[in-house]
Amino acid sequence: MAEISTGQAVGAQRTAEIQDAYMAMTRTKQMYGGIMLVVFIALMVSGFMLADSRNAGGFWDGILNVFQFPGEVVAEASEKIANLPALMVQFFPSLLETINIAAASTLVGGLVAIVLSLLSTRGLARFPKAIGLFRRMMDVMRAVPEIVIALILIFILGGGPVPAMIAIAFHTAGALGKLFSEVNENADLKPVEGLSSVGANWSQRMLLGVVPQVAPNWLSYALLRFEINIRASAILGFVGSGGIGYDLKNAFSWGQGRYDEVAAIFILLFLTIVFFDQVSGHYRNKLVGKA
């Protein structure tokens, strides 16, 4: 009996110790969480105040005027609603150019990304010592904003779709290269070994051993990228490089009187983005095997 009761006492003591330790841990965790929350809120509030003070128009003035411009556009567009279909047809070629820029840059960037990703994956790389080099290269390619390359190329090549295409492709190569190489890391190396045992060279090993395994995932990422690139190519157009963005800028800076054009372009852009969003979402689910 005595043994059991000492055992119980020890057990109870252990329980109390564990409980204390647990409560102490929870308290520190809560304290850290509380501190993090306070710091975060302070950062957000001071950040908004700072941003507000450095902005040309104040926040509270602006928030009341948010609907003024869309209101003007809608008012003028509904007045000239009969023009809209004709305007949409008129702007369709530039929309096509925007989509072409996105598609071409996704294709070119994707092809470059495939090579870069294979060169920077452990176990697959052609030059294992240069893996770090290719990875840093992709980091830099990802980091350069598209607008920088586009503006430099506009200076050299003149306006038009090609500067935007190259700029987006450059960024795409870096961004997809990283994602592709993550996919490659999960590829089974057995087919590669099998191919090398029959004397296949590097490109054959990659083409026949790796690509069939990873192609669906690559395609799925490339589709997602295509979606992003449509938006990017519209934005680059606005900064001066062809496509629907350029028309939007012209109509927009003309101001009142051409807001029906602005509305037509808004609608075209919206429909295009939603359409490709849906299509790419559907095929992506199919490719990665979700229902």
Partner: peptide, 18 residues
């Protein structure tokens, strides 16, 4: 798109980080 939001907002708030 972000482009359209940016245009609409820059009309209301003027240029700047906000």
């Amino acid at each position: 798109d972000g482009l359209i939001w940016t245009i609409i907002l820059s009309r209301a708030f003027g240029p700047g980080p906000m």
